[in-house]
Nucleic acid binder design. Structure first.
Lengths: 336, 336
DNA sequence: ATGAAAGCGCTAACAG
DNA sequence: CTGTTAGCGCTTTCAT
């Protein structure tokens, strides 16, 4: 293993000079730096980060935490977020992927070793963890969930607006009677999506079909069961379109329609939320609100890197990104 | 920050003794060890791994590499593999997720810092990377792909057998005329799956419909296009069932049927491969061969940990796991 | 069974 | 602009 000493000897300078060559803001003659860097590279020298960490206390791992990797994390999140992180990750940093629900040894894994943490949060269950990060003074950015009382930087999407846009689209497509299969009441996003629904009904003069306002839990099972209940309604009492709290719910709803022999969108229109990978794959392909996960991840990681670099920004604590509507096949245009 | 010195002082022993308390195989009186460990814990002492690494050269990061996180990695792989790793990961290890196709700085990220690497390989493109790991003497296990000439431990699934099982099922369900939409010819798995098809045709007396033997590339687009071509055949020249090289292809095939007004499975049976997350979600739900990803990951990580621990095993270099058939709705039972 | 001392590879004052 | 020196927190001989 070639160390800084070997390089120093070969270059005919002291350890310190070599060390400085690797430190961008050290004062050193440009020509010496170049000469050393070139030589070091030829010799196959790679700085030992353990040694550096030991003296500087710097860390070279960036942590990404998901609420629960075993269930509930939309699969697209994982790869999308990881990719976004790598876009901008300094090339001596490692990216560690973790699961809040099953984390053990916070001290050794997180506190001692992570330069910063990006939390992709799905639920308030993560609050204890987020608080712990704050206490440990670890630079943290929370994305995906709207933090009520932000202890950390927070980048989230405007879910209310997303559903509102879907409602507008429904109205324009000539729908009048609408229903909704909701999300888990304990989730902030569920309320925001419901709010978008209510605002849409009010602003676009739609009719809320109370018997078609159903509870749900972000699962396909619930989506199926609740859509069955809606389809059990006499056809003149049914809504012509149903907004689902997420794509899983919507896919379940699609299945219920299929099994009941109701064609989508001819007999029932369905709208999802998230734009998960199977939204485009489903039959029919799902019209859905695309959660701006790429934008949240990109903005979040940029902020995190700035925090780590010490560029503190005490003003902006929350950033809200607008989602967009992806029109596919599951909503009928009643004007045609 | 509390260091080993502080603990030593508080316990009235030397640094060395505290260090020994943390080293399972050091000679130290049991009662002293317990006393020290308890005290250290109370004081909030956490061993500094940078310092330990510096002297022992041990590493405390386990790397998981995927062929390409931006495309081609079935989404389920990611979370499944990560979960399997955490099942057994020692709690002072970090898990780092990486992308072979976009890896930079091998030396600093991998060579200097990873105790071992689990490669979830999709294609021969990864061979250069695998070779590099071998050269760098990094404990490595490659899963998911059948390595022709294993430089590393290799855990893969018997894809031939998987398709063969599907063929058997088709035969039992009364199908006679069969076709296939294949995978990328450059992939070993494509050949193995094709072999399973051919073996199935031979052993179960099925009829291979040559006009329905189509190329593919593991994408829904290809699946759709190729199924369209199959559906363009006069109905008496069509196969009654088509095996797809993977679930993406199968989902595309499902769409083609839907658009052509051919109902699945009544008018056409479709079988996938992988058991990806949308296999259960599709309409109709896909009958498919489940790739034993959990088993591969579990076996692979166990082997990797053994390698890291220095328990070398020069005999077994490859482990092959049998996949299973998941019966859902996309195959017609022609006996009914 | 325990302690003293040396040193892992590097950075950070402090001099020059 | 460059070199000398003193550690960072820990493990490891070598004594005792």
């Amino acid at each position: 293993m070639v160390t800084i000493r070997d390089v120093a000897k070969a270059a005919g300078v002291s350890l310190t000079t070599v060390s400085r060559a690797y430190n961008p803001k050290a004062v050193i003659r440009q020509s010496t730096r170049e000469r050393i860097l070139k030589l070091a590279h030829e010799m196959g020298y790679v700085p030992n980060l353990s040694a550096r960490s030991l003296v500087t206390n710097q860390k070279f791992v960036l942590g990404v935490f998901f609420s629960n990797l075993r269930s509930g994390t939309p699969e697209t999140f994982l790869s999308t977020v990881i990719n976004s992180v790598y876009e901008v990750l300094p090339d001596d940093y490692l990216l560690s992927v973790n699961d809040i629900a099953h984390l053990s040894n916070f001290e050794a894994r997180v506190q001692m070793r992570m330069a910063g943490v990006l939390v992709v949060s799905q639920s308030p269950d993560d609050d204890a963890f987020i608080q712990r990060l704050a206490q440990a003074q670890i630079p943290t950015v929370v994305i995906n969930r709207d933090l009520e009382d932000p202890l950390s930087y927070n980048v989230c999407s405007d879910d209310r607006l997303g559903v509102y846009k879907a409602m507008q689209y429904l109205a324009q497509a000539g729908h009048q009677r609408v229903g909704m299969i909701a999300g888990l009441p304990s989730y902030t996003s569920a309320h925001q999506r419901r709010q978008g629904f209510d605002d849409g009904v009010a602003d676009f003069g739609l009719t809320r079909v109370d018997a078609a306002m159903r509870p749900g839990n972000y699962s396909a099972q619930a989506g199926r069961k609740q859509m069955q209940a809606i389809l059990d309604l006499p056809s003149d009492q049914r809504p012509t379109a149903v907004i689902c709290a997420d794509d899983d719910t919507a896919v379940g709803a699609l299945r219920a329609c299929y099994q009941a022999g109701v064609s989508v969108p001819a007999g029932m229109s369905v709208v999802g939320f998230d734009d998960s990978i199977y939204a485009a794959m489903s039959v029919p392909a799902l019209t859905t609100v695309k959660k701006p996960i790429v934008q949240m991840a990109t903005a979040g990681i940029a902020k995190l890197l700035a925090l780590i670099a010490g560029e503190v920004d005490t003003v902006v604590h929350k950033e809200v990104i607008a989602p967009s509507l992806i029109v596919r096949e599951s909503v009928l245009d009643r004007h045609k």
